[in-house]
Amino acid sequence: MTGERSPRASLALVVGLTVVLGVAMSLVHLPSAVLFASLIAGMAHALTSPTVIAVPKSLYRMAQGVIGVVIGAVVTLPALERISHELLPIGVVLVATLLLSILAGRLLALRSDVSVVTGVFSLIAGGASGVVAVARDLGADERVVTVVQYLRVLVVLLAMPLVTAVVFHPSHGHGRLASAGAGWLRDLAFVAVSLAVGLLLARLVRFPTASLLGPLAVAVVLALGGWLGDARVPTPIQWLAFGLIGVQVGLRFTRASLASIARMLPTVLALTVGMVAATAAVGAMLAWWTPVDGLTAYLATTPGGLFAVLSTASDAGSDVTYVLAVQLCRLLVILALTPLLARWLSARHG
């Protein structure tokens, strides 16, 4: 470990590394580039200097809230209507995916260095950024949860184009997933109102994931109401939120925790590949049970990478609304159930 840095030098190191690595990772199209970059930057400081720096709690709660607003902004009436017409098959998919996640997490927790809560939330399918943002509040080791969750997302994103091309042979270029918002002023108003009201609700409710779910709920109401048009969270604000969460987690890494995570990576990789295969089987069941085509069912059930999944669905000409309905329903249910699941697991396994 090198000598002690001043707080200003430490901050400069973390911010500089985040920017440089974020740009480099974005150029090679890595998922969640800013979060990964800030995570590495926080680790680089924590592992090389005893100087203690931390993200203020208020900023961290706001970062959690921004992630909730990002998720809430993609909720649409067509997706909700589709969910209402397909409740039984979507419900079966949700239950099957949740059970597969718990099983995989329990298998990971067979290791003596992983608690059951950490194991389950490390491998729970859906809402990686949301789960990472609230992992510590739920009693899980957010260092392990972050590494494992985004390894899962990376495996899913690497497997998805290969499976789509080799198994389903779709024609490409049918369309693109719109990402434009309603203009900067409306987008900023959307974020400000969602955060202000949502975080106020979070203070009143005092639910473990309320800092994420409060702004998410307000964002859903605003998105469905359409008062601000097709509002979205501006990309720089998303980057800032992911950066704050990544740095906060990275600063908590130690050499011992890194060694522990490195030792479990072969197990994690095997469990992740098994989960991808198992959810593909759930997709095949969905295609057999319902009128949707095989590619749509596969994309609807693949465990992670919501925006990449929607972009693939749009480009391949599959049913984007159905994919969004299933993915979004699973994401919202999992985020809502995480506090209850954490309490249940903690009560059963101490």
Rank of each mutant, 00 (worst) to 15 (best):
L13I: 12
V19T: 14
V20K: 07
L21A: 13
S26K: 10
H29C: 12
A37S: 13
M43N: 09
S49E: 02
V55M: 15
A63V: 08
G68W: 05
V70E: 02
L80P: 00
L80W: 06
E81N: 06
S84Y: 08
E86K: 00
G91D: 00
V93N: 01
V93C: 06
V95C: 03
A96Y: 02
L107A: 12
L108F: 01
S112C: 10
V120H: 10
V132R: 06
D137T: 08
L138I: 10
A140G: 09
Q149E: 08
Y150T: 10
L154E: 06
A159C: 14
A165S: 12
V166M: 11
L177W: 15
S179I: 14
S194V: 09
A196N: 07
G198C: 01
G198L: 08
L200D: 04
R206E: 01
S211G: 11
S211C: 03
L213M: 10
L228E: 08
G229D: 11
V247L: 13
V247C: 06
V249N: 13
G250Q: 14
L251P: 02
R255E: 14
A256E: 11
A259Y: 05
L271R: 07
T279A: 04
W288P: 01
W289R: 01
D293S: 00
Y298F: 15
L306Q: 04
L306S: 00
A308H: 08
A313E: 00
G317L: 01
L324S: 09
A325H: 01
Q327N: 03
C329P: 03
A336L: 08
L337S: 09
P339L: 02
